[in-house]
Structure formats: structure tokens, C-alpha cells
Design a protein around this nucleic acid. Structure first.
Length: 333
DNA sequence: AATACGGGGAG
DNA sequence: CTCCCAGTATT
């Protein structure tokens, strides 16, 4: 991995943010494009947030990108481009939690602080046969303390990366091949037959259904309308087409009768058609989005609100959008 | 202590 | 389908 070839705090920080809740295979190309686009923390700090979000597009958990940018500006402008040099100080950076602060401090500065990520939880819960839920307050404290007693004080960087890689490759979630495991003699879970039931995690989230009806305006054949998502919720600061969210499935009548739609049309002539009968079901970890697209043909600009804008379709690719819309745009334009 | 926050890959 | 990923911030 390229981030194993450096101890530059900027690059280690960048890689760790990208890899939060993200598989190495998925994050690697993003890391490479970020390093190329922003070789230093100053380059990242000087970028527009929209450009950063565009590079982040498709990686998910977009607050990471917003915090990444904000922290880059903080380090560049307030700290003269020099990252904090201890676990305690790193922890104060936005987007840097216990895991990331430990990773940077150990890898870059040799500080003796253990990382406890999903891999470490799995390895430790199995080796010591601990069934305390890893996402409970007690579990988080217990595993961090246990990890502190195990870390190699002579080479914390190597130890931390080694135990994570051991968890990813050998002590993996499903079907770990315990028969060839170098640690099988001391593994308490193997001894007790609890390997497959560990680690224990508290209840999973319940999924909510939402219905998104996107309006794809076709103005003069070469323009459309987009808007930036603001406020709370998913996809903050990303762009999207005007959308009518409904509490259940609706069709053309539901769209044309919608107040927001009528405000937008402002009495002008239009032709509306359903792009595709079948709903595109976009699954997030905590929401299932049932989406449909309506094509709205008009000859002049609709009455757009403050946060909406009319753009030429040729420029649509420069806007950061959720992957759901990125796929639609690729098909449609 | 719970919940929100993405998208994808593996089985 | 389910699980979970080199987690963090907010409520």
C-alpha cells in the first residue's frame, strides 16, 4: 500500500480518513487521486469544497470530505502546515477520532498508542474470547485498555499495522482458516468454539423507506436544473436534481399536483413523462431509497428558488452528486 | 447510550 | 438477502 511507504503526516492522515469504514480496495484509487490533485496540505486547503467533494464522489460518508477540507485549512492556516505531533492534539482535529489519532501518532511519530479498529476488535475478542459488545461503552473502554497492554512499545507503528492486517487477512469475519493460524494455540475462542460468534455487536439499525421523485428538466434541449442539498441528512452539500419526496409511491398526478412543482412551473407550458416505470432502489446502510425520474420538457427557464440553478447539461459532470445520480447522469446524458 | 451517515464487496 | 468495512459526530 502506498501509505506504507511514507511517514508524512499529511499522507497518513489522508489515507486514514479515506479508509474509515472503507475497504482498502475501494479507498486506494481515491487516495491516489487525492495525492495527485493535492500533493500537500496547502494544496488541499486552497481547493474549493465543491472540487474536494467531486473527488470524493462515490466514496460515501461525505462528512469525511467536508471535515478533511476544513482540517486541511486549519492545519495550513493556523498551524503553518505542520500537523499536531501527539495523539492528544491530533484528537482535536475535526474528523479525527480515537482510531485515526492513534494511527497517525504511532505511524508518524512512534507514539505508543494502540489502534482499535474493526480488525482489532475481532482479533482481540476472539483471541481472549471476550463477548462484551464492541460498540458498547464498556466494550470500547475494555478493548482499548487491553490493546494498550499488548502494543509493542519498541515499534508501535509496525505492531498497529500488523494486527490490523492480521485481522483483515487471517482472522477475517467469515470463515477464518483457524487450522493454519499462527495464533491458534493460544486462541481462547477457538478453544471454546466461539470464533464465529465473535465479536459481539449490539443491534443493527432499522432501515427506513423513502421515495425520491427527481425532476429532470430539459430546457431548450440543452439546459437543466440542479440544486445543492443543505441542512441535515444525507448527501450534505452534494448536488441533485429538484426532488419531490413523498411518503409513498406516487405517479404523474402526484408530481403535477405537488406545490413545489407548481411553484417551479409558475403556470408555464410543460410536458412531463416518466423516464422509467421501475423504481431504482438505492440502498444506504440506514435508508432504502425508492427513486424515479421524470423528464420535464419546457421552452424557457422555470421559476427557480435561491438554491437552485439552471446549468448547461454539458457542465453537469463537474458537480459532485450522490452515486445514485451519477449513474443516472451517465446513462441519460 | 443511540443514532445518523454511503457505497460496495463477499458469501 | 446479511454482514461489515483501517469510525466519527451529533443527539
Amino acid at each position: 500500500m502506498p501509505w506504507r511507504e511514507t511517514v508524512d503526516p499529511y499522507r497518513i492522515w489522508l489515507s486514514e480518513i479515506i479508509l474509515q469504514q472503507t475497504r482498502v480496495a475501494q479507498g486506494l484509487p481515491y487516495y491516489l487521486s487525492f495525492v495527485e490533485a493535492y500533493p500537500t496540505v496547502f494544496d488541499l486547503a486552497n481547493a474549493q469544497q465543491e472540487e474536494v467533494l467531486k473527488l470524493w464522489q462515490g466514496l460515501g460518508y461525505y462528512s469525511r470530505a467536508r471535515n478533511l477540507h476544513e482540517t486541511a485549512q486549519f492545519v495550513a492556516n493556523e498551524l503553518q502546515g505542520v500537523f499536531p505531533s501527539s495523539y492528544k492534539e491530533l484528537l482535536k482535529l475535526k474528523g479525527v477520532g480515537d482510531y485515526t489519532a492513534s494511527a497517525i501518532a504511532s505511524i508518524c511519530y512512534g507514539e505508543v498508542v494502540p489502534v482499535v479498529d474493526g480488525n482489532v476488535y475481532r482479533v482481540l475478542s476472539r483471541y481472549f474470547n471476550i463477548d462484551t459488545p464492541i460498540n458498547s461503552t464498556k466494550g470500547i473502554k475494555k478493548f482499548k485498555e487491553l490493546a494498550s497492554t499488548l502494543i509493542d512499545t519498541k515499534n508501535p507503528a509496525n505492531y498497529n499495522q500488523a494486527i490490523m492486517e492480521f485481522g483483515a487477512l487471517q482472522c477475517k469475519p467469515q470463515s477464518p482458516y483457524c487450522i493454519i493460524c499462527p495464533l491458534n494455540e493460544g486462541c481462547e475462542a477457538l478453544k471454546n468454539g466461539t470464533v464465529t460468534s465473535l465479536p459481539v455487536k449490539l443491534k443493527k439499525v432499522k432501515v427506513k423507506n423513502r421515495y425520491f421523485n427527481y425532476l429532470i428538466f430539459n430546457i431548450d434541449g440543452n439546459k437543466t436544473v440542479i440544486q445543492q442539498r443543505t441542512g441535515k441528512g444525507i448527501w450534505q452539500n452534494l448536488y441533485e436534481f429538484p426532488v419531490i419526496e413523498s411518503s409513498a409511491k406516487i405517479d404523474i398526478d402526484g408530481i403535477t399536483g405537488d406545490q413545489g412543482f407548481m411553484d417551479l412551473m409558475n403556470g408555464m407550458d410543460y410536458e412531463i413523462s416518466l423516464y422509467q416505470e421501475e423504481y431504482v432502489i438505492h440502498k444506504l446502510s440506514h435508508q432504502h431509497l425508492y427513486t424515479r425520474f421524470y423528464i420535464v420538457e419546457i421552452q424557457k427557464n422555470p421559476l427557480i428558488s435561491e438554491e437552485q440553478k439552471v446549468i448547461h447539461v454539458s457542465t453537469i459532470a463537474q458537480y459532485p452528486v450522490p452515486i445514485l445520480l451519477g449513474k443516472f447522469i451517465d446513462r441519460f446524458y
